[in-house]
Nucleic acid binder design. Structure first.
Length: 684
RNA sequence: GGCGGUGUAGCUCAGUUGGCUAGAGCAGCGGAAUCAUAAUCCGCGAGUCCGGGGUUCGAGUCCCUGCACCGCUACCA
């Protein structure tokens, strides 16, 4: 038996700008929780860490849209998500948040330390500073006269008229788009993390972990092959962790660098909570400790390349031992979409169903090797035929049999026959069969191994036919029932990682001491229930889900999908957004005929169109390629915005914009006209 | 467009370093049983292993290529 191992498990920090759905859960949380609960049963010293990721632009944008402060957004979703996790039985030891002081300090310490080691590269550049807004202006927020063609509306990154790539400092008569004031040129610095310098070490690190999932490894090798580039670790933003250096006012640490450190700060916070403030070091700075980061596939590069690089730069920290990344979960054959509200939200689910059936479903169908699919029909089937039919039924038939014929008391197991001995062997090997899979993070296989125990139990019950024996040989029948209770106890313990609530319920029904989660995995396969032990009256473990309930859920899913982002839209059409006729008049809409269309090379979505507008011919670059082919467009009369400032896209000048409608599902339709009206005609 | 992944029975998915007649669960069909939430147990699969080439004594498993889908990334006036 291995000795107590120290294991630090993390799940990706959910971004606190929205609620959690089942896709999140299936990827990074449930598999981790199963792994954690299993290791606790094994007696390992596990700490399970997570928290809300609360910085970054997306939060400020959402706050601006909703007309609230960033803290309002993060407070709301932090609390909501934290509560959902608890209800679902995700057993974090600490669920922190990156807005906490401990995290700010940790992130600053890392930044400062890496800076002090002269690892960060400072790149000086002159940038415009708006003194009224008290901030440096990103290129796009500066306008002025183009030094090449003298066009007055040139932007800081390029001139739309002549297509020249510009540096903002080249502009003549620059103006801040924020305030309309003339910005001053100030020297500013950005710090870059030289990922490339860690290329060799990262390669060695990857080479040392051939046991990682193939998708993770290949993905990382792909990045390495391309060569790692310097990556900025500072940004000019007001929301985030201030850069802890002099002269870095108005700069924050870039989220990619800081968020992953949330695992460390959350561990520190936990250590304080348990009254041993230094204990986090036993994990993060202990080479004997095994760090496992559970994530979704979208997060691979941050956890398997960048996070290790940061830890290497800092030194004295352990690196992830494994990064089990799951693929994505689809819903009813389609992608889950938060913007379309096509999802099953966790808190929503928990309002109507118990956690365990979903835990079971998501574990049985976890997207381990490829994207997998969740459907309500499947959910019903899994619940009814597997949980109710196989697992629940076995326990129930055993317990009601004992209640009726043995006064709820476990009979002695004297005089075992061959079949009984086989069953005991089966019980004895059950924990190992589940562990084998869990040690390799193969949750699906583990769950199947668990269910196979229940299947075998049913078979044993059937083959023994105790309902006949009870009339002919009650002692022998008693042996059978003793076996059934032994295996029920084993099932209760093995069930803990997957379905903790039902495991405890079963444990109580069996009237055993303590709780199921407090048992030892190593002895789960031993027949420990004594003869004469009194059981509690039988109760149903899992309830059947009727067709009507599932139909209602499917209808909900469809209904909710029809009205996307309701509040956002209401505001946009509200009074404050009304424009005057004069404003509308400024937009010059014209009829144009598409003469030719072709795909822009090396761009998936772009089409280069030539259109006729009256006498004039124009080139328009439009992001339509995914919905329309050249044939769809050539010859069509469309509406264009004729007086839009030209812009360079992919090196091609776009002289106008083609109008098309796009709905919430991403379906598009061109705006066209009924008759063969002359091109160049004004639309009003 | 670049990088990575996936495409196996009606459905959801396994298939380890290439090797015996390609598997599981569910659904379906037939049977047994009736202790149990009409729950269980046994038996039944003529699948172009996405298409096309190739390597090999032998390929779902390796190589090339085409198609489809997913993720990251670039670009969507």
């Amino acid at each position: 038996m291995e000795k107590n191992k120290k294991i630090l498990v993390t799940s990706a920090l959910p971004y606190a700008n929205g609620p959690l759905h089942i896709g999140h859960i299936a990827g990074a949380y449930l598999p981790a929780d199963i792994y954690v609960r299993y290791n606790r049963l094994k007696g390992n010293d596990v700490v399970y860490i997570c928290g809300s990721d609360e910085h970054g632009v997306a939060i400020t944008i959402r706050a601006e849209q909703d007309g609230v402060k960033p803290t309002d957004i993060i407070d709301r979703f932090h609390e909501l998500n934290k509560k959902s996790f608890v209800r679902f039985g995700i057993s974090f030891d600490n669920y922190s948040r990156t807005s906490r002081p401990v995290h700010h300090e940790t992130a600053k310490e890392f930044f400062k330390d890496i800076y002090d080691k002269n690892i960060l590269k400072k790149k000086k550049e002159k940038q415009f500073y708006d003194e009224n807004a008290s901030m440096f202006l990103p290129d796009r927020y500066v306008e002025g006269t183009c030094p090449v063609c003298k066009n007055q509306g040139a932007r800081g990154d390029q001139c739309e008229k002549c297509g020249s790539d510009l540096d903002q400092t080249e502009l003549i008569n620059p103006i801040s788009k924020l305030t309309g004031e003339t910005p001053v040129l100030k020297e500013t610095s950005h710090w870059y993390f030289p990922l490339g310098d860690f290329q060799g070490k990262l390669k060695d690190y990857l080479d040392r972990h051939p046991e990682w999932k193939e998708n993770v490894r290949n993905y990382c090798y792909g990045w390495l092959k391309q060569g790692l580039r310097d990556r900025a670790v500072t940004r000019d933003l007001s929301w985030g962790i201030p850069v802890p250096l002099d002269g870095a006012d108005g700069k924050v640490i870039y989220v990619w660098f800081e968020a992953v450190l949330g695992y460390i700060s959350a561990t520190k916070e936990w250590a304080k909570q348990v009254g041993q403030p230094d204990r986090w070091k036993d994990y993060w700075q202990n080479p004997e400790c095994k760090l496992v980061n559970f994530i979704g596939k979208d997060n691979i590069v941050f956890h398997a390349v960048m996070f290790p690089a940061i830890l290497m730069a800092k030194g004295d920290y352990i690196l992830p031992e494994n990064v089990p990344a799951n693929e994505f979960l689809n819903l009813e054959g389609q992608k889950i979409s938060t913007s379309r509200n096509f999802a099953i939200w966790l808190d929503d689910y928990l309002d109507r169903f118990p956690p365990d059936p979903l835990r079971y479903m998501l574990a049985a169908n976890a997207p381990e090797n490829k994207d997998s699919d969740f459907s309500w029909k499947d959910f019903q089937t899994r619940n009814n035929s597997e949980l109710v039919g196989i697992l629940g039924n076995f326990v129930n038939r055993s317990m009601t049999f004992l209640a009726k014929n043995f006064d709820n008391t476990v009979p002695p197991a004297t005089d075992l026959d061959e079949m009984d001995r086989e069953l005991l062997k089966r019980i004895a090997t059950a924990p190992q069969s589940v562990s084998d899979a869990l040690e390799k993070f193969e949750v699906r296989r583990a769950l199947k191994a668990f269910m196979d125990v229940a299947r075998d139990a049913n078979k044993y019950f059937n083959d023994k036919e105790p309902w006949h024996m009870v009339k002919t040989d009650k002692v022998k029948c008693g042996v059978t029932m003793n076996m059934c209770i032994q295996i029920s106890r084993t099932l209760a313990i093995l069930m803990v990682p997957f379905m903790p609530y039902s495991a405890e319920k079963l444990w109580k029904l069996l009237n055993l001491n303590g709780d199921a989660a407090g048992q030892n995995w190593a002895t789960a396969g031993e027949p420990k229930v004594a003869a004469g032990h009194k059981l509690n009256p039988p109760e149903i473990l899992f309830t059947k889900i009727e067709d009507g309930v599932i139909e209602a859920e499917m209808a909900r899913l469809n209904d909710s999908q029809k009205k996307p982002e309701s509040d956002g839209k209401k505001e946009k059409t509200g009074k404050s957004n009304l424009i005057s006729f004069d404003e509308f008049k400024n937009v010059d809409l014209r009829i144009a005929k598409v003469l030719s269309a072709e795909k822009v090379e090396k761009a998936d979505k772009l089409l280069r169109l030539e259109v006729e507008v009256g006498e004039e011919k124009r080139q328009i670059i439009a992001g339509l390629a995914q919905k329309f082919s050249a044939e769809d467009l050539v010859g069509k009369r469309v509406v264009i915005v004729a007086n839009l400032k030209p812009a360079k896209i992919r090196g091609l000048e776009s002289q106008g914009m083609l109008l098309a409608a796009e709905d919430a599902n991403g379906e598009m339709s061109l705006v066209t006209v009924e008759n063969e009206i002359a091109t160049g005609a004004k639309v009003k």
